[in-house]
Design a protein around this nucleic acid. Structure first.
Lengths: 194, 194
DNA sequence: TAGCTACCCTAATACAATTAGACAAATGCT
DNA sequence: AGCATTTGTCTAATTGTATTAGGGTAGCTA
């Protein structure tokens, strides 16, 4: 049989496309093999198991999002930067729902540490420098922003906002306004007294 | 063969327990049947398919959380109520991680409408009356709170906060402080001019 | 060009989901 | 109690996914 020219990157790419089409949870090694015109067992020349395929899609998504976030943040600060970062995630999820879901796939500690995951936290932290928060508030704010962005995107993706007439874009804008307001005006922790 | 005394409720209960032990994604009809000492095909006398089992666990979780939220909110208002509601979700997720994950399982529109899901939104809305927001801000705030609560809980559950020394409880408290502050002080939309 | 390695295949196993059909247990009617 | 019906469980069988073992060849390498 002729060589099919498969490698782990192509499997990952195909799995990512499939995820966006049919949902990350529906992605299966068999489906990927089928789409590439190879037999299931051939997968195992390139990946260890089906889980690795999902992990690779997760890593791809984290990296794509981090790259897009970095591009969106370039040259921006303050609320501008906040909005740019937030929209990067939301837009990515709209365009690549399967990959976005993949990005929430649970990685083991080492894989997570080596992934683009930490870059996201770093970018959020960088953005927050514009708000001049003392530690540990800055860390808390990183968590608040990550939580709200992810929560909003995932609820919206799940359709939770479709039952109320209010436009999801408008609520999103209001949410970002509110976060910006809160971070700018949140009572600062007492500075150490003299 | 003797009757095993199975019904849909017992299947659901068992599936929920299993979810908390091994993770919602790992719950399988076979595993539930195994635990109950029956054969796989016997499941189908009680449920239509494996998806229904997951849907039922999701509905159970939504209802348990709604009941606990209602109890926690009783007699509270303002920030007190906000904290009580938020902690209900976070505590439930800590105690029942599999069920919590199940509660995010995507339901079709009709099932979702008939579920306890809407109660959650109503309770959040009720709580927000203490903040006296005009519409559509109130709706936006419902979405903000839902997003932040869910986002925080799901990131924490996924271990995203374990890599930074800052205590997750402390960040949570700060987050709730910040939301309360934002909702109390957020610039109100202009009232209609005379 | 002989051989090595990588890659793809077929064959086979195991587990999950599901359907069909047999049969006994519970239920209910008379 | 006696009989019919419904219900709950089983065995057998099918399909799809994940995975291992082992064979054969394409294409590089010496």
């Amino acid at each position: 049989m002729a060589r099919a020219g498969i490698n782990a990157a192509r499997l990952t790419q195909t799995a990512a496309e499939l995820a966006d089409e049919i949902g990350f949870d529906q992605v299966t090694g068999s489906a990927v093999a089928r789409r590439l015109g190879i037999k299931d067992p051939s997968l195992y020349a390139h990946i260890a198991n089906a889980r690795e395929l999902k992990v690779r899609v997760a890593l791809l998504a984290l990296e794509e999002m981090a790259d897009q976030a970095a591009a969106a943040l370039a040259g921006r600060a303050g609320k501008d930067a906040l909005v740019a970062l937030a929209n990067t995630y939301r837009d990515y999820a709209k365009k690549h729902p399967g990959r976005y879901t993949a990005s929430r796939f649970e990685l083991d500690a080492q894989t997570a540490a080596a992934s683009a995951g930490p870059r996201h936290a770093e970018m959020t932290r960088a953005l927050l420098r514009g708000y001049d928060l003392p530690e540990p508030d800055q860390t808390d704010a990183v968590r608040l922003l990550g939580s709200t962005f992810h929560g909003y995107v995932s609820l919206e993706m799940a359709g939770s906002f479709r039952h109320t007439p209010r436009d999801a874009d408008a609520s999103w804008a209001w949410t970002l306004d509110t976060l910006d307001f809160a971070l700018r005006n949140h009572p600062r922790r007492d500075s150490p007294q003299a």
